[in-house]
């Protein structure tokens, strides 16, 4: 059910955006839109199906966590 609604939403967005670009012959835009849209759809379906998403927060915490701890050590 959820997947169906999502499909409809995506179809709606594509139907709204793509014809304009085709009409104006913005092929570059269309390509970028297509790639981003595919990525967005893939991630959304992954999320909807309960698959784990690549989560950048982990990486950020890994890189900047030590910095934060360092500041903490200096200042307290």
């Amino acid at each position: 059910m959820l997947i169906l609604i999502l499909m409809m939403v995506f179809m709606g967005i594509i139907a709204l955006e793509a014809p304009v670009m085709v009409k104006n012959r913005q092929w570059r835009e269309l390509a970028a839109f297509g790639v981003l849209m595919l990525g967005a759809m893939a991630l959304t379906f992954a999320q909807a199906l309960g698959l784990p998403l690549p989560n950048p927060t982990m990486g950020i915490e890994m890189i900047f966590g030590p910095v934060s701890d360092m500041i903490k050590n200096v200042l307290s």
Partner: peptide, 9 residues
């Protein structure tokens, strides 16, 4: 055209 895909992200 990128508004919606970025929004979904």
């Amino acid at each position: 055209p990128l508004v919606y895909p970025v929004g979904i992200f």
